[in-house]
Amino acid sequence: MANGFSEQGLLRLRDVLARHVDSGRIPGLVALASRGGQTHVEALGTMQHDGGAPMRRDTIFRMASTSKPVTIAAAMVLLDECRLRLDDVVDPWLPELADRKVLRSIGADLDDTVPARRPITVRDVLTSTFGLGMDMTALGTPILNAIFERGLTPNLPVEVPEQDEWMRRLGELPLMHQPGAQWQYQISSDLVGVLVSRVSGQTFGDFLHERVFEPLGMHDTAFHVPADQLDRLPTLYAPPTPPRASSSPGTSPRTAAGAALRRSRAAEAAWSPPPTTTTPTSACCSTAASTKAGASCRGPPSS
C-alpha cells in the first residue's frame, strides 16, 4: 500500500458506492480519492434514472454549496495581498451595510430595532456572522418573509437580482443578530462574492476564473457549461413532492425513482448560457478531477 491505497480498501470503497447506485436512489456517481500522491476514481451507473450515457471520469456536476469554499478561496487571495484585512470595516466597499439596525428579537416587526453595537467587519462576512442569514426555525417571521420577497436567496419564485440591486435590497433590512454574534447560513456567501467583486473591480466570475480556476488548473470549473459540453452534465433531480409518482408492476427501482424525481430538461439548458450575474449561490459546475486540482492547492494562488 505504501502511502496510497490497498487493493482491499478500494474494493470496499467500490462496494459501498455501488450499493447506492443499485438501490435506485441515485442513477450514478463519480467518486475521487487521493492519498499519498495516488488518485483513484470510480465512475458507476448512468447519468439519468432510465439509463442512457454512463457516468464518466469527466462528467460535470453542479457543485451546489461546495461553491462556498471556492468563494472563500477568492477572498483569501485578496487577504494574502493585503487588499483586505480581517478587521477592516466593510463600509468602504459595502456602504449599503453602514449604520445597521438590529431586530429586538427574531420574531419582531422590521421596525422594532436597536442600533448595532459596532460596524460589520470583513471577518464577520467571511465567517457568516455579519448578522443576517437563513434560519429555518424562523420561517414565517417578518424578517424571513422579507428575505424571500426580495429574492435574496436562490431557488425561490423571486429571481435573485444583479449584484448592486441585491445589495440595495439587502440594505433595506435590519440585521437578525448583532455583528459577530451568530453564525447564519447562505447570505454571507453571496456577500463575500460582492465584496470580492467590489474590492477587485472585476465581476466575481471573472476574478474566480483569472485568480483561482486558471492558476490551479481547474479547467472544467465555471458558472456555466458550454452548449457543446452539455452532454457531460447529468439530468437534474430533486426530492419528490406529494403525491409521489407511482410505478407500474415490473418497473425497475431506478426508473421508478426517476419518475418521482426528474426535473425538466429546461433546467439543464439553463446552465448553458453564461449567467448575467455571478454570485456564490449561482453555484459552479465542475468535474471530480477539476475539483481535486483546487483542493490540492498548497497555498493561495498569486499573480
Rank of each mutant, 00 (worst) to 15 (best):
Y237C: 01
I26V: 06
T255G: 05
L44H: 00
F130W: 12
L132T: 07
H177I: 07
Q163G: 13
S282E: 13
I187V: 14
T255S: 14
A181F: 06
V21C: 04
A18I: 00
S65A: 03
D58E: 13
L32K: 07
F5E: 03
A74N: 08
M167H: 09
P300W: 13
G9C: 08
D231F: 09
S286M: 04
R232H: 01
F213A: 01
T255D: 15
L86I: 11
V30D: 00
R35Y: 02
Q38P: 04
R118I: 03
E7G: 15
C82W: 10
G9T: 08
M136Q: 11
G205V: 08
E7I: 11
T251D: 11
S272L: 00
A73C: 10
A53K: 11
F130R: 01
L29H: 10
L78D: 04
S34P: 06
V16D: 14
P300F: 10
M63E: 12
L216Y: 04
L79A: 02
P253C: 00
T66W: 11
Q229L: 06
A2I: 08
M134C: 11
R198M: 00
T59I: 05
T153V: 15
E96D: 12
P234L: 07
M47L: 15
P249G: 03
R198H: 01
S296N: 13
W183H: 13
P161E: 08
S105M: 06
F148W: 14
L236E: 09
V16P: 07
P239W: 02
V194Y: 08
S282G: 15
R57I: 12
T235C: 10
V102N: 02
F130I: 01
F223E: 01
V16S: 13
M1H: 14
E165W: 06
R12E: 15
M167N: 11
P242Q: 00
M47H: 08
